[in-house]
């Protein structure tokens, strides 16, 4: 099957720090791919590079057959490539429904759409998606009053509201009550299967990522260390060394 995202030999330096060094990966349309690696190995930097938060120093990034490495963040998002954040980012002083409405994506932003009312049917869609992530009862609360875990769920719902083609999830289960984690895995699989959204997931929880992903990439020290099926990664000596420290 064709790749929706192709990252080719991307390098990103911050002064002398080589955050990403010749990183390549590709994600097949409709799949769930995992990205793991010890802290500071450059996973989030790679996410930032892909969505255009900062310019990359070398390499190419192709999404849906289009070169996107020079596009600004909103333009990449408009193409249907969205990311969520490790430290949740929500609109704290407005309520959950409004958070969702802001996240809906008008195809055009001109004077007419800017100064027109948010369509009524979007509210219904927002409520359904909030129900999907279990936040329906909290829809009228200020998003800033939600707990960290709930904000993570809200962020997921906001991303879905935008109807992306592909989602980059930065640690979707970090800080979430363990009893909810199975629910989240379940939701992410539904998102992938039924909504048809391709997922690239950064995750530290091995149980989650092994259950979720069909293919896993492992970064270490800014370089791609290994890739393969969950089984292969689990038994890869280099990966184990990177996580536990080689003797």
């Amino acid at each position: 099957m064709a790749s929706i995202l192709r990252v080719d030999k991307v390098s990103k330096y911050f002064g002398g720090v080589k955050a990403n060094q010749g990183v390549s990966l590709s994600v097949r349309t409709g799949s769930i791919v995992g990205l793991i690696g010890p802290n500071g190995s450059g996973k989030t930097t790679l996410f930032n590079s892909i969505v255009g938060t900062h310019p990359i120093d070398r390499g190419t990034i192709e999404f849906d057959g289009r070169e996107i490495s020079t596009l600004p963040v909103p333009a990449v998002a408009k193409l249907g490539l969205l990311r969520t954040f490790q430290q949740t980012r929500i609109f704290g002083k407005v309520n959950c429904i409004q958070n969702m409405l802001i996240s809906s994506n008008p195809t055009k932003e001109n004077l007419i759409t800017i100064f027109s009312k948010v369509p009524e049917e979007l509210t219904e869609k927002a409520e359904n998606l909030l129900k999907f992530v279990g936040l329906h009862q909290k829809r009228k609360l200020l998003a800033g009053d939600l707990s960290f875990g709930q904000q993570k769920l809200l962020e997921l719902a906001m991303a879905l509201m935008n109807e992306p083609k592909m989602l980059l999830l930065d640690e979707p289960t970090a800080g979430i009550n363990p009893t909810l984690i199975n629910g989240i895995i379940d939701r992410l699989i539904t998102v992938n299967k039924e909504f048809g959204i391709t997922l690239l997931v950064i995750e530290h929880n091995m149980r989650v990522i092994m259950n979720l992903a069909q293919e896993i990439y492992c970064l270490a020290h800014g370089e791609m260390l290994a890739s393969g099926s969950p089984e292969e990664i689990k038994n890869d000596q280099r990966v184990l060394d990177a996580y536990l420290g080689a003797g």
Binding site: P74, A77, L82, R89, I90, F91, G92, S103, N105, M158
Partner: peptide, 12 residues
């Protein structure tokens, strides 16, 4: 509330 997030959601 969060301009980075707004941009990440595709808002110019």
């Amino acid at each position: 509330d969060n301009e980075d997030k707004a941009e990440a959601m595709g808002i110019h």
